[in-house]
Simulated scan of single mutants.
Amino acid sequence: MVKTSVRLLASLVLLASFPAATAQEVPGRPEETIPAQVELMYERGLQYLAKSQNEKGSWNDPVGGEPGVVGLCVAAFLAHGEDANNGRYAKNIRLGIDYILSQQNDKNGYIGSSMYNHGFATKALAECYGVLDNPKIAPALKKAVDLIISAQKRNRFNAWRYTPDSHDADTTVTGCQMVTLFAARNAGIGVPDEVIKKGLAYLATCRGKDGDYGYTSSSGGKPTLTAIGSLCYSLAKEKESKGYQASLAYLKKNMDYRDRYYPYYYEYYMAQALFHADEAAWREWNTRNIRYMSTIQSQDGSFPGNQGPSFNTAGALLSFALNYRYLPIYEK
């Protein structure tokens, strides 16, 4: 595809202008045809996000001012291979990153008012590091990663929950921080192996005999939580254990699941979990997901749901961003 090739070339040329120590590698994607339906939905979704973004760089819906949601919206642009400096959506990406930076506490590096926000916002900074020409990103990212690490040290479970000072933990917040730490590593930020090992050890305590993950323990497992736990083990290159294989089998049994309470959060993680675990399973699920998403996208390009159109749309787009595979976190 000509458009895809041009977009990728632009990204590679841009990366060549940054020092090797700071630039993260943006991988190419296999020479596969992007499904036309995916490209149509993605374009419409990005157009919606671009048009509805405000001058501050956030969105005006109920959750659109949360820096974590802004981070997911920025990721949606980057995952399509958009040039962050000179492309058609460069202004939207830059505004989003500027907004995230404006929400960071200068003293401790905390972004927003919850570790959910901090995690997804930090991940966006990591994905822009070495790609977006903004000297403020590097120190902000380092501070943000340091806060994640220090929060784990203060937590009695060696994991994470709602605030940096939380002493309890759950799989969703922990998974968010873990994926963010892997993205930071991809960007060249140092993350001690011990931090990853402790995070994985906590997640293992929430995995049931059938491979399903619960919220704060091994009981009450759900596909959404299992996708989160499985993805973390994949990114850590820990795929050989019986527990991991049991989780994969559980996810395969629940290919038609849809989360009633957190739609798009499930799809966001399920796409990545299956892709890293079993590409054939991902292809089957991806086909179903494309079909489903095509039936619910609104005329203006947004997606419906109970979390606000900015989050809904970003989450939906990211659920089929693996058809493009531009972000380093999507590489196996």
Rank of each mutant, 00 (worst) to 15 (best):
M1L: 09
V6L: 15
R7G: 10
S11I: 14
L12I: 15
V13L: 15
F18T: 05
F18V: 09
F18H: 11
P19Q: 13
A20C: 05
T22V: 13
E31T: 07
I34P: 00
P35I: 05
P35W: 05
M41W: 06
Q47R: 14
A50N: 09
Q53S: 11
N54K: 09
E55W: 02
K56T: 03
K56L: 14
W59K: 00
G64Q: 00
G65K: 04
V69Q: 00
V70K: 01
G71Y: 01
F77T: 04
G81M: 08
Y89Q: 06
A90V: 11
K91L: 12
N92V: 08
D98R: 11
S102G: 14
Q104M: 12
N105G: 07
D106T: 13
K107Y: 06
G109P: 01
Y110K: 12
A126E: 11
G130Y: 05
I137Q: 03
I137S: 05
A138L: 11
P139L: 07
K143Q: 14
K143T: 03
K143M: 14
L147R: 09
I148C: 12
R154S: 13
N158V: 02
A159G: 08
Y162N: 15
P164K: 13
D165G: 10
S166R: 04
S166C: 07
H167E: 15
V173G: 06
V173I: 14
G175D: 11
C176S: 13
T180W: 00
A184I: 07
I189S: 01
G190K: 14
V195S: 10
L200Y: 07
T205G: 06
R207K: 15
D210W: 06
D212E: 14
T216G: 10
S217L: 00
S219W: 04
G220H: 05
G221T: 07
K222V: 02
P223N: 12
T226S: 14
T226F: 11
T226M: 12
I228V: 15
G229E: 07
L231K: 07
S241D: 11
G243C: 05
G243H: 06
Y244T: 08
A246C: 05
Y250K: 11
Y250P: 01
K252C: 12
R258D: 03
R260H: 08
Y261I: 10
Y266D: 10
Y269G: 00
M270I: 03
M270N: 08
F275L: 13
A277G: 08
D278E: 12
A281I: 06
E284T: 10
W285S: 08
R288V: 08
R288K: 15
R288I: 12
I290N: 01
I290S: 03
I290D: 00
Y292N: 06
Q297W: 00
Q299H: 02
S302C: 00
S302N: 07
S302T: 02
F303D: 01
G308V: 00
S310D: 02
A316T: 09
A316G: 10
L318P: 02
A321Y: 00
Y324D: 10
R325Y: 01
Y326D: 01
L327H: 02
